[in-house]
Computed example of a mutant assay.
Amino acid sequence: MLQLKWKNNIGFKFKGLLIDSLVKNFIDADDSRKSVTFSDYGTLVTDLFEYLSKKDPERSYWYALGSNQQITNDDNGKFVKKAKKAFNKVNALESEEALRDAYRELFGSKFAQETAKAQYVAPYEEFAENKFNVDIRYNLKLDCTVTQAGFRPKLLTEFLAKHRPLKANKQLEFKVVKTDIPDLLIPSVIWYWKVRNTGYEAKNRNNERGQIVVGGMRKKEHTDFNGEHYVECYAVIDDTLIAKARIDVPINTTTGGD
């Protein structure tokens, strides 16, 4: 199911029964959605994200499909905010390349390859959906402390909020800052990290990254190459990915912030 791929790939908790109920309501609201051709697929995806984005995140519960049991809103309708972001990403996309990139980010590399031409991947790049069973049950949030001699430490989210990239020669310490994984399960979690650097400099120097490696709840890195990079963290128990998070790491030595 599309929305299951979305929540597992982006990495946030979204109850399966609620997914089924909302998608069924969306389909039933317009008979034309029951017989969609492949050429209409992009429009359907966009419309579904728009539909989800307009739900009330403060609602106490929703009614389940068929049984009418109450599905409680345990996390302030987190899916609504995620749907708004997804809608903004895919709305009005026209080129096949842009759509492929958006699908890859939203639904994972396998989905993008199935629905469009194969996209470029870095040498040795790995993808969580190929390495683990994916069943996102919990939420995870990352941040990063940015330090450099002569400057006070700042959080990466401060730079991102101001749309300011980082300059080179900064030390980075990524860390899990929030999760609702039960304390009882934390000792059983194996933490993995993926650092993906992109852009001409990394590629030209044959230093692209993208492997998934074992680590802890913190990971130290540093800024090297200009580009729109990102870091992902995965919480895995018994070879099942139960939570994941991603944070963007834009680096620009010309316009980056101190």
Rank of each mutant, 00 (worst) to 15 (best):
P153I: 00
F127K: 03
T254A: 13
M1G: 12
S60I: 13
V36C: 11
S188W: 13
Y61D: 02
V177M: 04
Q119I: 14
D248A: 08
V213C: 05
V45M: 02
K81S: 08
A161M: 02
G66H: 13
K203T: 10
L2G: 07
E208L: 15
R33T: 13
D20L: 04
L52P: 07
L184W: 14
K117W: 08
K7A: 05
S39E: 15
Q69N: 15
I247W: 03
I10M: 05
L99M: 12
E114G: 14
V80M: 06
I181V: 00
L185R: 08
N8Y: 13
A112Q: 15
Y200D: 04
D258N: 12
D143H: 12
K81Y: 09
E173K: 11
T223N: 10
V36M: 12
P187Q: 08
L241P: 01
G108M: 10
E58K: 04
L172Q: 00
V214W: 14
T198C: 04
N133K: 15
D74Q: 09
R218H: 13
Y103A: 01
N9S: 07
I251Q: 01
E50D: 07
S53W: 06
V80Q: 06
S60N: 04
K117E: 10
N133E: 10
V121A: 12
D239M: 11
V36G: 10
Q69V: 09
L185I: 03
G66A: 11
N76P: 15
V45C: 03
G66K: 10
K162I: 00
L106R: 04
F49L: 06
A149H: 05
N206Q: 08
I71C: 12
I247F: 09
R205P: 12
F38Q: 15
T255D: 11
R59G: 06
H229M: 01
L22C: 04
S109H: 15
V213Y: 13
E173C: 03
A235V: 00
A64V: 04
S95P: 13
N226S: 10
N91H: 14
F26C: 08
E201D: 08
L4V: 04
V90T: 04
